[in-house]
Design a protein around this nucleic acid. Structure first.
Lengths: 279, 279
DNA sequence: CGCGATTTTGACATTGCTCAACGCAGGTGG
DNA sequence: CCACCTGCGTTGAGCAATGTCAAAATCGCG
C-alpha cells in the first residue's frame, strides 16, 4: 500500500447474519443474477461470456484478483461488475449497508470518516488495485468518494463470501491486505502525532512518489488529482498550510510544479530527510 | 478494544520462511521444550501438569484464549509461560525478531513506534486480556513496554503457529482482533487529525471509563497508571498541556481527582459531548 | 472570454509548545 | 527518623506553528 487504502473487512465475522440464505439486498449488482449457489450450467454459461473482462482488467494482478489464477477468473467475473463514478460521487457511505466490495480499476478515491459535528478526517486515498468497502460488520465504516473520474469493480458481498469459502487462497490475500491497512493506519498515526506540516507534506509526496512515473532523469513526477482541502484532510492540515509548505519547498528547489496538479521531486534525498521516514 | 491494543499479526503470512522446520530460536520461552511436533506421550504429560494455569488464568476469557474451550486449554498451557515485568521493562522491541506473542495478564503496557530522530508515538495502551507482539513479518513492528508492574503470558511463535493450524477457531479470533485493532487505529487517526487538546483528553478518559469500575453513585473512576508524558505520547500532546486540560476540567466540575492517579468522571454527559464521540 | 471554484497570499488570532521555576512524593542513606 | 535527592507534575510567561479570515490570483471549463 502507499497512502492508505481501504479500511476494514467483511464476511468473515459476519455481524449477525448467516452467510447463506436471505434475499439479495437491493444494492449495487443485485441484478447480476444468482451467484453463489448457481446451478452448474448457468454458472458455466455466465463464466463463458464473463471471462474476458477480468482477464483483460487493468488491475488483474492487484488486490484480491491477483490471488486467483487465470483459470479461476471467470468465477470472479461472474460476481463482479464495473461501474464508472464521477468526481464527487460516493462508492460507499459510512454507516450504510455493506452490500458490495469494490476494487478501484482507475482514478482515485478518498476514504474518510466524519465526526458528528461535520469535521471529516481522510484516512487514505485509494489508487488503482486498492480494495474498498470491506466491512467486518454489516455497515461500511467509512465513506469512499471519487476525487477524480474513476472506475470501480463491485463484487456482491454474498458472491464474494461464497468465493472466499471455495478459494482459501483468497483468505490469505484478504489477511495480508488487512495487515497492510493496519500498517498504513499506524504510519498515519505516527505522522499525525509526531510530524510538523513540512514533514507531513513530504511524507505524503514521498509515498506517492514510490508509485509515480519518473521523468527521463529518473525524478518522480507525482500526480495530485485531489483538492488541497482533501490533502489537508488527510494530513491534518488546512489547505492554506499545504499551499504555503509547497511554496516553501519550491523556493528551496526541492520540487517543481510542472503541469497542473503535477509535482516533480527534484531532490529526493533531502526530501527523504524531511519526511523523516521510518527506518 | 478500548484505547488501542496490539498492532499486527504473525504466522499467517510468514515473511519468507516455512512454518514447520527450523530450529527454535533462542528467544523467550525457547526452553519450554518441544511444542508443536511433540510425541503424544510427552505432550500429554506436559498438558497434565500445565492445564491448571490457563484454566485459572485471570484472562482466560479474553484475547486468544477465549477462543478455546476448557478441554483444549492444556494445549495452550503447553506452549505458553508467564513472565513478570517491572515498569519500564520491554516485552517486545520494534525491529527485533518476533519470537513470541504475548497476552497481558495484569498491569499495563504502552505500545509505541519510534521515529529515526527519537520522537516516539504511542499507538495504544494494552490492558489485561490484550494481545501484543503479533507480527506479520519476522520482526515486531512496535515496542511494548510496561508502564506499571505487569505479568505477560508468552506463547512461542512456532507453537502458536501449530496451534492455529489445528484450531481453525483461533484464526477467526485473530481476525476479529486484527479488525478491532484497525478500528482502534482509525479512531486514533480521527482523534489526532481532527480534535483539539480538550477533546483528545476527554476521548481518552471516556474510552478508559467504559472499562473502569464505578463508585457507589455509578460514576466511573478511571485509573491512570501511566505518566503524563506517555499520555501525551498517545494523544499527540505535551505533558504540560495534559496537566492544564485536566486542571480546567476539574475547575469546571467535570472531573475530580480522588486518589493519586485516579480520576472520577462527575458529568458523563457533558464529557461525552466534549469527547465528540463518533456516533 | 468569462464565470465559479480553487488556490494563493497576506494579516492576524489562537492553540499548544518551550522553557523555567517550583512543589510534591518516593526512595535512599546517614 | 529525618534530610536529601531525583523524577514527575504543575504552573506561568512567552513564543512559534498553524489556523482563521479575507482578498487577490489562477485555473478549469463552457
Amino acid at each position: 500500500m502507499d497512502v492508505g487504502e481501504d479500511q476494514s473487512m467483511s464476511f468473515f465475522v459476519e455481524a449477525n447474519g448467516q452467510p447463506g440464505r436471505g434475499d439479495d439486498r437491493q444494492g449495487f449488482l443485485a441484478n447480476t443474477g444468482p451467484h453463489v449457489q448457481t446451478p452448474i450450467q448457468t454458472q458455466l454459461q455466465a463464466q463463458a461470456q464473463a471471462a474476458p473482462r477480468c482477464l483483460r482488467c487493468a488491475v488483474r494482478n492487484e488486490g484480491l484478483c491477483a490471488a486467483l489464477p487465470a483459470g479461476e477468473l471467470p468465477e470472479l467475473t461472474a460476481i463482479s461488475r464495473n461501474r464508472d463514478v464521477g468526481a464527487g460521487e460516493m462508492v460507499t457511505i459510512e454507516g450504510q449497508d455493506a452490500d458490495a466490495v469494490f476494487t478501484l480499476v482507475s482514478g482515485m478515491l478518498k476514504i474518510y470518516k466524519t465526526l458528528p459535528d461535520g469535521r471529516e478526517q481522510i484516512t487514505g486515498f485509494a489508487t488503482p488495485g486498492d480494495v474498498v468497502g470491506l466491512a467486518f460488520g454489516s455497515c461500511y465504516v467509512y465513506t469512499a468518494e471519487a476525487v477524480a473520474p474513476s472506475t470501480v469493480c463491485g463484487m456482491v458481498r454474498r458472491g464474494l463470501h461464497g468465493l472466499v469459502d471455495r478459494k482459501p487462497r483468497l483468505q490469505g490475500r484478504l489477511l495480508s491486505m488487512l495487515s497492510a491497512e493496519l500498517t498504513a493506519a499506524q504510519d498515519q498515526i505516527l505522522m499525525l502525532g509526531c510530524k510538523n506540516a513540512t514533514e507531513r507534506v513530504c511524507t505524503f509526496l514521498l509515498a506517492l512518489a514510490r508509485r509515480a512515473p519518473k521523468d527521463e532523469q529518473g525524478r518522480p513526477v507525482v500526480f495530485l488529482p485531489m483538492k488541497k482541502l482533501d490533502m489537508g484532510g488527510y494530513l491534518g492540515l488546512r489547505p492554506e498550510t499545504i499551499s504555503r509548505v509547497l511554496r516553501s519547498l519550491e523556493t528551496k528547489g526541492l520540487i517543481t510544479r510542472t503541469r497542473s496538479a503535477h509535482i516533480r521531486i527534484d531532490d529526493l534525498d533531502t526530501f527523504g530527510d524531511l519526511a523523516v521516514a521510518a527506518e
